[in-house]
């Protein structure tokens, strides 16, 4: 037996969320007294591949096939499931990224495995394999037991710490038979948002709502975000009105994020908004209404006018950076 971690790359590099998933998979391997095998698909340089060893992978299987240069959900799922079978991996771990969400259900079906998606903690080390995940849009957690022999677990980004084990990984080429029927989807174009910090990966997020009055007032939000190295986000009415792009909309119908810091400026804190952000580690609310519901779930707050408070915050961050 072994544990297999699928290490997804972004343009040839592994993101922090992947190293988190490797650390997490290593801890699961340790619970089971077994080894951790990583699988990489696509063009990743040797030095980057061996970095997976730093977080606990003993062996890295490297699949570099021209047909698999860019992501093809069905084909990638086949390769990962095949690697799991060849390595005798009864537990497969992925990051619950957008691609991971596409892959995990297919891999689970291929392996006849139960799937614990969006795990937020290590499995219980006891006799039963139980994992905690967020349910009811952040309003509760469920403890899910996987009762099948094979298991697939996808880890929510930013919910497990990085653990450097300092080990080395051996890199081996891995080839698998590819089926033409796995290649029916074709990528026509990839449109990159901008070179800004991407919201789903961001550790710090500065977000603003209808309290900002209009799109012309986002300059100070972007300035604060830039200074902090944070991503920007917004409430639904703001993206509905076209003040900000839909990709920034967080909440029940937008994306769910769990950054280390979420600063909400001029957002009331409606339950549908909270659904996407309530698992943020630290929440800061700036709102001129002391009764705004958001204050009930905040760690820090300022009751005040955003147009006065935000410039002061920008000044304070500048001073902090200068010191």
């Amino acid at each position: 037996m072994s544990v297999l971690i699928y290490a997804e790359n972004a343009d040839g590099k592994f993101k922090k969320s992947i190293f988190e998933a490797v650390s997490y998979a290593k801890a699961i391997a340790a619970q089971n007294n077994t080894t951790l095998v990583a699988l990489s698909i696509g063009n990743v340089a040797a030095a980057e591949l061996s970095a997976l060893g730093k977080y606990g992978a003993e062996k890295v299987l490297n699949v570099s096939n021209d047909k698999l240069k860019s992501f093809v959900n069905q084909a990638y799922a086949s390769v990962i499931a095949e690697a799991a079978k060849k390595e005798g991996s009864t537990i497969v771990v992925l990051s619950n990224s957008f691609s991971g969400k596409g892959l995990a259900p297919r891999i689970a079906v291929k392996l006849g495995a139960g799937l614990s998606d969006g795990a937020v903690s290590l499995p219980d080390a006891g006799a039963r394999f139980t994992v905690k995940k967020s349910v009811f849009s952040g309003k509760a957690f469920a403890v899910v037991e996987l009762t099948s022999e094979n298991k697939v677990v996808s880890l929510t980004p930013n919910s497990y710490k990085l653990v450097e084990t300092g080990g080395n990984a051996t890199v081996e080429d891995f080839t698998s038979d590819l089926k033409d029927s796995d290649f029916k989807t074709i990528i026509k174009d990839i449109v990159k948002a901008t070179d800004k910090v991407s919201l789903p990966d961001a550790e710090l997020v500065v977000s603003a709502g209808r309290g900002l009055k209009g799109p012309e007032n986002w300059g100070m939000i972007e300035e604060l975000a830039n200074l902090l190295g944070a991503a920007t986000a917004c409430s639904k009415p703001v993206s509905d009105a076209g003040w900000r792009p839909h990709s920034e909309h967080v909440g029940q119908t937008g994306i769910a994020i769990s950054p280390n810091l979420y600063i909400a400026i001029g957002i009331s804190g409606a339950i549908q908004h909270l659904a996407g952000v309530s698992s943020s580690k630290v929440i800061v609310v700036i709102n001129k209404d002391p009764e705004a519901p958001f204050f009930k779930v905040a760690d820090y707050g300022i009751v005040g006018d955003a147009f006065e408070v935000v410039p002061k915050l920008i000044e304070a961050v500048k001073q902090l950076k200068a010191s």
Partner: peptide, 17 residues
């Protein structure tokens, strides 16, 4: 293949500072 054993509600955040 899977079973929900129990539910938990998130720990309440402390008083806002």
């Amino acid at each position: 293949l899977s079973e929900i054993l129990s539910f938990e509600t998130p720990a309440p955040r402390g008083q806002v500072k």
